[in-house]
Amino acid sequence: MSEDQHITEVAGTGVPIPGDDIDTDQILPARFMKEVTFDNMAEYLFYDARRDDDGGERSDGSRASSDDESDGEFNDHPLNRFEGASIAVVNTNFGCGSSREHAPQAMMRWGVDGVVGESFAEIFADNCKSLGIPAITAGHEDVVALQEWIEANPDGEVEIDVEKETVTYGETVIHGEVDDAMQEALVDGIWDTTALMYSNLSKVERTAAELPYIEAA
C-alpha cells in the first residue's frame, strides 16, 4: 500500500451478490480467521454459501457438519459463476455484524476492486476505505437493474467513477453517492490514515494531556 495512490475509477466485469443484511460471518466465516495474516483470505470468501454440502443436498434439510473440511462441491453461487470479476454489486446493509476486516480483505484478494450497493454497514464501509476499495451507493431499482444486467452480460464492463459518483455499464449511467470522506481520501490519495494522523502526533499529545483520565507521564 502506497500513500500516494489515487483511486479515481475502477472497472471490470461484475458479480452480483444479491440479498439484504449479508453479514460478515457469511462473507468470511469465523473459523477461517485463525491465521495471523490476511494472505489466504480469498480462499474462504463466502466459503459456506459457495458450497453445497456433500451430495448437494442443501434444500432438503440434511446438512453436513462444518467440521468436515471436505465441505462439498462448488454450487452456483455468483462468486463461482463470475470468477475474475472486479465490481461486486450488493443490496442493503451489506457487511453488517462483525467488524472483521477479513471480510473486505477476502473480497479484495479474490479480485474485487470496487463495490456498488444500496447501503453498507458502517464498519464495513470504513474497512473498504482503509483498503482503498470504493463503495458507492445507489437506489434499489438501479442496483437491481445492474445485477440483472450483469447476469445477462457476464463479460460486460462495469465502471465506478469515484470523482463523478457514477456507475457506468452498457449504455447506462447510474448516479450514485460516495461518502465524502471516502471520496476525498481515494481521489486525493490520502486513504492511508496512519501517515496522515502520524504527522499530527504533537497535537495528539496535547489533546491527550488535557483529558482528566490520562495520568501525566
Binding site: Q26, D53, A64, S66
Partner: peptide, 9 residues
C-alpha cells in the same frame, strides 16, 4: 446469523 455458531446448518 447462519453459520455464526460454527455450523452452516
Amino acid at each position: 446469523f447462519i453459520g455464526r455458531q460454527g455450523s452452516k446448518g
